[in-house]
Design a binder for these strands. Sequence first.
DNA 1: CAAAAACCGGACTAAATGGTCAGGTTTTAC
DNA 2: GTAAAACCTGACCATTTAGTCCGGTTTTTG
Lengths: 214, 214
Amino acid sequence: MSANNNYKEISIGEFNRSKILNAAEKEFALHGFKGARVQQIADRAELPKTNVLYYFKSKESLYLALLEDILRLWNSRFDEATVGDDPAEVLAHYIADKMEISRCRPDASKMFALEIINGAPNLNAFFKDQHASWMAGRVAVIKQWIEQGKLVATDPYYLLFNIWATSQHYADFSVQINELRGKPMTRNDFAEATNNLVKLILTGCGLSVPIEFE
Amino acid sequence: MSANNNYKEISIGEFNRSKILNAAEKEFALHGFKGARVQQIADRAELPKTNVLYYFKSKESLYLALLEDILRLWNSRFDEATVGDDPAEVLAHYIADKMEISRCRPDASKMFALEIINGAPNLNAFFKDQHASWMAGRVAVIKQWIEQGKLVATDPYYLLFNIWATSQHYADFSVQINELRGKPMTRNDFAEATNNLVKLILTGCGLSVPIEFE
DNA sequence: CAAAAACCGGACTAAATGGTCAGGTTTTAC
DNA sequence: GTAAAACCTGACCATTTAGTCCGGTTTTTG
């Protein structure tokens, strides 16, 4: 087997590393950093524990590798929005992006939630600064929208918090949601919940809902 | 000292039990069941570890005692609302009640969140049934409101999920919120956030906001 | 094909952890 | 005042845990 065959070449190392990352995401999402067990990560990855520690030198470095991956998920089109854009379009797509993460990467969302609930001990100063300046930029744009009368006066912080809260809830609290609904959320249910949420937030902000979310 | 003095009589046992429960709530809220350490609970309560295990026979029984307490917090006036009530009033107060819990009992909220994220392994069938039937009742009332035209057509499940998500977010994600706002939420900030949230949700449902939340 | 690099995994270790025990002191009840 | 009940805690134990070690096998590279 060499590089020029039909299937994407993937080394044993890459393959195992990815099995470990997947297993670890699940375990950390269930039990948090302190509660997760290396042995259980190994079991879930179907590898001996020593092998996990061969690829990642410690439980902590495995956790940090995952966390870094997850933070990249947060990027979205909203990052580059400016006052010239249509707030209804931008916010609707931002909400939809967030819902899509909850649907496709619920464990990533849960892991992040646990990290925050834990007091964010592994989010370093660099990330916090970056996050804070992202926030400042987004808040500024929202304020400009309000000044231009494109948006009803509302606190930009609370608006963003509410968007995060509702969209992430579908991942973090999926167990409760499924229990109460009596059935798991399908792709269609997610589409419905997304439209519902877009409508709630946009209407709540005095915006009209883009047709694609009706 | 006897029962007839000025200060409320409280036995050593009651006093220590409560110190332990407070300390444990904090630790479980930070690290979840598996991640929390009995020694750290003891340290936080300023008692030797053996003393903690004197009052609660195991880490698990301490956890369960707390969880039971916390589930009682969920009771609210909304539980008894009927189709005859005004949805705007009822929902606004329900949201305000939830926000009040996030302000006063953030660790209880976090502990519950961790339990759910963990897959709710300690919520027994009895509680789940009770919760499901509460939900069914509330969904029915909301549907009646919609039928009577008191409320715009919306999915009652998603509506409740959104209320929980947003209100609990202020407790569960307080670390992120404080980091981004640059300062902790004061009582006044909570009042503001509550009014903001009531406005968002009620407006989103086509209801007008009761004056007390303006 | 040969050497180097990458990979594998059983046996082990040191530390941490939940929990027990037993002998004490303090508080309560009569 | 005294006996019972409640409370306290240092010493200890069995188990679990993250992480190491090291002799092997497999894969890659030239």
